[in-house]
């Protein structure tokens, strides 16, 4: 048996359903911990609403948030993969929009015309790589616009250095304030070039928030920034409280000696990400949603 395009679209429908209904374990745990540790009445009620909503979404097999994002996919393909994964994903998104359902979010950027199926020019957006495994791996982040709209790029000068990076992240959180549905998760991309820094900032959100960067210096910076941000007291929904940020992940790349690009991607509390692996026999597993 070989993987068919239909296996891909079936897997993508299921992947999108699982992803919009249930959070990955690390994010869910962080929210429950924030709820347990909050003492003030107003933020406690915000976190209770979030925790209740998480439970109700699972129970009803319903999207946890009405903003199911635009479909941005990361795909790892086996060498010599013959199946048209791109077409399979497009078909999967179309079907999931009806079957899950997802909110039809994708519109023409200028006319704002909504085709109603989340498919349009370059959307779904797919990044492809080749890997050494025999399976196709597809990861999706269904990210709402409230948080995405708070994302930013800074082209710092090398002399601004580490302090400049810290300043940029802190100011980004202050500027975002109550808008991105805090408690947030932050992805920080350091280095590369303007486009790479933003790409890394988003890809940083693919790592579980309880896993620190493998480079001890970056790991230290992740913890330091997170602790400082949680001193701000913006709190859940910007109504004050202990938890402003659930987690902060950094990814970096070497950059030009004359540049220091930094990207900040802001993710709401609903840090939805999901992965499916499609094996050569067409069978699919969902490692982010196995519980």
């Amino acid at each position: 048996m070989v993987t068919e395009q239909e296996d891909v679209s079936n897997a993508v429908v299921e992947l999108l359903r699982k992803t919009v209904v249930r959070l990955p374990q690390d994010v869910e745990d962080a929210i429950r911990n924030a709820y347990a540790s909050e003492t003030d009445e107003v933020p406690k009620m915000q976190l209770k609403a979030i925790v209740d909503n998480i439970d109700m979404a699972i129970k009803g097999n319903t999207p946890m948030c009405q903003d199911t994002g635009v479909a941005i996919f990361y795909v790892d393909l086996p060498k010599g993969c013959k199946v048209d994964v791109g077409e399979g994903i497009v078909e999967g998104v179309r079907r999931a929009t009806k079957e899950v359902p997802l909110r039809p979010n994708a519109v023409h950027p200028i006319t704002r015309k909504n085709p109603g199926d989340n498919v349009g020019e370059r959307m779904p957006y797919i990044s492809r790589r080749i890997h050494d495994q025999d399976y196709i791996e597809i990861t999706v982040m269904t990210k709402g616009a409230g948080s995405e709209n708070m994302s930013q790029l800074a082209m710092l000068t090398p002399s601004q250095g580490l302090k400049g990076i810290k300043e940029f992240v802190l100011n980004g959180v202050l500027r975002a304030g109550s808008n991105p549905c805090p408690p947030t998760i932050l992805g920080v991309g350091i280095g590369g070039s303007s486009d790479i820094a933003m790409k890394l900032a988003k890809e940083a959100l693919l790592r579980p928030i309880n896993v620190r960067h493998k480079d001890p210096e970056m790991a230290k910076l992740e913890t330091e920034l997170l602790e400082a941000i949680n001193m701000l007291g913006i709190g859940p929904m910007g109504l004050g409280g202990k938890t402003t940020c659930l987690g902060l992940n950094i990814e970096y790349a070497y950059c030009h000696t004359a540049s220091l690009p930094v990207g900040l991607n802001v993710q709401c509390w609903a840090g939805r990400r999901g992965t499916v692996r499609i094996y050569p026999d067409g069978k699919a597993t969902y490692p982010t949603h196995e519980r």
């Binding site: 300043e167 802190l170 202050l174 304030g177 920034l225 001193m231 701000l232 007291g233 109504l239 004050g240």
Partner: peptide, 18 residues
């Protein structure tokens, strides 16, 4: 909340060495 955040910002900046 914004008034309190402005106050807290000083502590956060100090922690980051800014």
């Amino acid at each position: 909340v914004n008034v309190k955040v402005k106050e807290n910002e000083k502590k956060a900046r100090a922690k980051l060495g800014l």
